[in-house]
């Protein structure tokens, strides 16, 4: 009995050290999540950009870090209200005609009815005093949310920094968007 007890600890010491080292290396690779919400705003329709801006604003109002990465159709929601046709070639120009800029002009994905749907929606929102996406965008930035456009889709759709609203962060790429999502406790694709 005595010999077993004496041998066992010395034999496993090196093994134990190795295991501690392995654990430390594993821990170093682990991601520390922040109290943060990141939304990839892909959709530009009213029924997508509205929840996007509600959640981003509420997270910022709750003291969380909040960031929104605008890409594809989401980008049209942050075009300046006065900007009409954007882009350099006919394809980009046609795209901008099909997707009039700014959150105010966002269409409904269902029941659009040539604009009657969004008008009814906004009438209801006024009656219930729900802030509209364009109002929420400025509230969100006011509360410290970061709004970030996607550089690649800006180039693809022919949108320039000057076509977009004020108060945005510098455009970023997919890797930075992933870095944003990686350390966010909550990340959504809307």
């Amino acid at each position: 009995m005595a010999t077993i007890e004496a041998e066992a600890p010395t034999a496993s010491l090196g093994d134990l050290l190795q295991r501690v080292e392995a654990l430390e290396a594993q821990q170093a690779k682990q991601i520390t999540k922040k109290n943060k919400l990141t939304i990839i705003a892909w959709g530009g329709s009213l029924d997508q950009i509205w929840p996007t801006t509600i959640l981003a604003t509420t997270a910022a109002a709750s003291g969380m870090e909040s960031s929104v990465f605008f890409t594809f159709w989401g980008l049209f929601a942050i075009v300046k209200p006065g900007v009409r046709i954007t882009g350099e070639n006919w394809m980009q120009k046609m795209m901008s005609v099909m997707n009039p800029g700014s959150a105010e002009k966002a269409k409904l994905s269902h029941y659009h009815f040539a604009g009657a749907g969004p008008a009814m929606f906004k009438k209801l929102a006024d009656d219930h005093r729900v802030a509209k996406p364009e109002e929420l965008i400025s509230l969100a930035t006011d509360l410290g949310a970061r709004l970030i456009p996607c550089q690649m889709t800006m180039d693809l759709l022919g949108l320039k920094r000057a076509d977009l609203i004020e108060g945005l962060e510098e455009p970023i790429g997919a890797a930075t968007a992933i870095a944003e999502m990686r350390d966010a406790a909550i990340s959504l694709f809307i």
Binding site: A131, D142, L143
Partner: peptide, 16 residues
């Protein structure tokens, strides 16, 4: 009279 997230936004702005 304000709906979600109005009250919270108003509160957060006042707290700032």
């Amino acid at each position: 009279g304000q709906s979600c997230p109005g009250p919270l936004v108003a509160l957060a702005r006042a707290l700032k």
